[in-house]
Amino acid sequence: MNDVLLNIKNLKTSFRIKDDYYAAVDDVSLTVRKNEVLAIVGESGSGKSAFAFSIMGLHTRAKIEGEIDYKGINLAKANANQMKKLRGNEMGMIFQDALSALNPLMVVGAQIDEAILLHNPKSSKSLRKKQVINLLNQVGIPRPEKTYDQYPHELSGGMRQRIVIAMAISNQPELLIADEPTTALDVTIQSQILDLIKELKETIHAGIILITHDLGVVAEMADRVAVMYAGQIVEIADVYTLMENPQHPYTRSLLNSIPTLNEVKEELHVIQGVVPSLQNLPRTGCRFAARIPWIEESAHEASPELHEISPGHYVRCTCYKDFYFPEQAEEERNYVAN
């Protein structure tokens, strides 16, 4: 396992609300390898963004426990100076909303320049300018020289996201974290940006963590997928297994709830109830149990673990074995009755 880039063990990220700490990321363990795209899928409140921010050390007021092993350095315990050297250099990040992720008062060229300068303090200004222009070319900006001197508000949404990507890859990072990189974009721009990330992956050979809620994006991009619910990973597998043979009730429900182009469904599956808020997360037992009340209590584990059901395919809790969709059961009953 030489190609493991990031080895996360029992990561727990907690936020303080009033006088108590609440874990938004609760006991997450996973690895990210070089050259792979690991997708983290979940809805809002699943803890997927808090997870990404924990790796980058971008939380300002959170308690982080566990181990984030990156080349022998535990990022969870690293000091500010160590993190400063890694961030933007070996680890790059792409944000969801490019307009707000860019400083409105700086030309975009200067913002990319800053990313290079911070990690190459001795480089000359003219060399850096060349590098920035190259980067702008690389991310598909049509007129790099002109764009260099433009402000974020002068560019379109797609162009801005390209700038954010250029900034993230400016020092050839080994780990790239993309937090919902296309959510704010139109479909045609989304496909362009996804293709760009794919092409960049081939050239910079980075390990990519792709945070998304969009299962279509997952199917297009990911090598492996981790599904998060309520701060925990509920299922992790390679993308083919996960999309074709999903096991955890949450994964299956999620896949059933999206309308797709390939098959027209009469009715979409609805997951009962709501995602619990951070303060109201069930901390014991199966966290998804409340959303599938028709499954018997005995089907769940008392303290659900991830079980490896086939090589590389992990599912949390035992409830997946007894899970069925109520509407399917009804259909079957009708069928038998007739």
């Binding site: 989304q190 297009e220 990911a222 182009l261 390939n262």
Partner: peptide, 22 residues
């Protein structure tokens, strides 16, 4: 055509084909 080609395909096995098609 371009709009429809841009929609992500939910089957990961079509990925390459879809990319080429795009």
């Amino acid at each position: 055509k371009r709009l429809i080609a841009a929609i992500p395909d939910s089957n990961p096995r079509n990925r390459e084909m879809h990319y080429e098609n795009r």
